[in-house]
């Protein structure tokens, strides 16, 4: 990997874990810059309806996606831009979708909460909590019949009180399906602290069904990756469903209309000390000896990348309502 300084001069040739670490940092940064672009475009009236941003939670999707193979499948949530980008969905096509453009990943039909990109392993993002859990459970049913693929469901801690959670974890456990359940615990279900509405420990719920469960630091991409790698390997080996609780925090409101007044004083600032990008920067230097200038170079590259992406999105055509007169039904081919 030819790394460059911010001024464009080549500084070092990275390899092995350092190179990989910088790549993980870059993917998280792409998510962060994407979400910032969405926020900014929302305020300008270019993104419509509502959006749920993944700012602060980037290590979860990036850490998990990094251990997946081409034939694995993932179901994300309505807070799913990070899930999509981590899987390799083109940021341009994703931002075009946010802006309702014809060139969007779903042609502008889906919008922020319902992104689907099967070519990049994303079977969907689900606007109703728990939908991701059942979709991944079913995907695992198909993957098991087709080979050794693993399905992943992302969902928030609020979903652990939903019927889908209880029904599907039992269903998957009984059938020993190759599915990894990733609970992204960002502490708040919409505006309500999860402790206020959740009995007992979340991790105890899968454990009582005999599902191997690990709680990890969701702000450390390497910690998430390590847990995911082991869990996916067990699922792939036929050991049945696996569960990871990733402890994280969203640095923004639940949705665009939420100022986050429910947060405890100082809580946000405290978690920002554990910003996954900050954690990664520190670890790249301390554990992998990566020069800060290299990381600065990545920052500059991604910033330039997004300036161009935003510009192209704003220039992209809207779908033609006449051409969008879609068929109600898929033409049957079998």
């Amino acid at each position: 990997m030819a790394a460059t300084r911010k001024d464009g001069a080549a500084v070092t040739e990275l390899s092995g874990p350092a190179q990989h670490g910088v790549e993980l940092y870059r993917r998280m940064l792409v998510v962060r810059r994407f979400e910032e672009a969405v926020q900014s475009l929302f305020q300008k009236g270019e993104v419509h309806g509502t959006t749920h941003l993944y700012v602060g939670e980037e290590a979860g999707a990036v850490g998990v996606a990094d251990v997946l193979r081409p034939h694995d499948r993932v179901a994300g949530t309505y807070r799913g831009h990070g899930h999509a980008l981590a899987l390799g969905v083109d940021p341009q096509a994703l931002l075009d979708e946010m802006l309702g453009r014809e060139t969007g990943v779903c042609g502008g039909r889906a919008g922020s909460m319902n992104v689907i990109d099967l070519g990049n392993r994303l079977i969907g993002c689900f606007g109703i909590i728990g939908g991701s859990i059942s979709a991944a459970t079913g995907a695992a049913l198909a993957l098991r019949q087709q080979g050794d693929g693993v399905a992943v469901a992302f969902f928030g801690e609020g979903t652990t009180n939903h019927g889908y959670f209880h029904e599907c974890l039992n269903f998957a456990a009984v059938l020993r399906l190759p599915v990894l359940f990733v609970c992204e615990n960002n502490r708040y279900g919409e505006f309500t602290p999860f402790e206020d509405v959740t009995a007992g420990e979340i991790a105890a719920r899968p454990q009582t069904l005999g599902i191997p469960t690990e709680t990890v630091d969701g702000m450390d991409v390497w910690a998430v990756r390590e847990a995911a790698e082991a869990a996916v390997e067990r699922a792939r080996a036929g050991e049945g469903p696996q569960f990871i609780q990733s402890m994280t925090y969203r640095f923004v409101g639940h949705s665009r209309s939420d100022p986050g007044r429910y947060r405890k004083p100082g809580e946000l600032e405290e978690w920002k000390q554990r910003d996954p990008l900050k954690v990664a920067r520190e670890k790249l230097a301390a554990a992998f000896g990566v020069d800060g200038a290299v990381v600065d170079g990545v920052d500059a590259e991604v910033e330039a990348q997004f300036e161009a992406i935003v510009e192209r999105s704003l220039a992209a055509p809207y779908p033609d309502p006449v051409r969008d007169a879609a068929r109600e039904f898929a033409p049957t081919t079998s």
């Binding site: 499948r73 969907g124 059942s134 459970t137 079913g138 995907a139």
Partner: peptide, 13 residues
């Protein structure tokens, strides 16, 4: 919920 949601997930895979 699980039966129907799983059928959907299996179908799109």
């Amino acid at each position: 919920l699980a039966i129907t949601g799983a059928a959907f997930g299996a179908a799109v895979c």
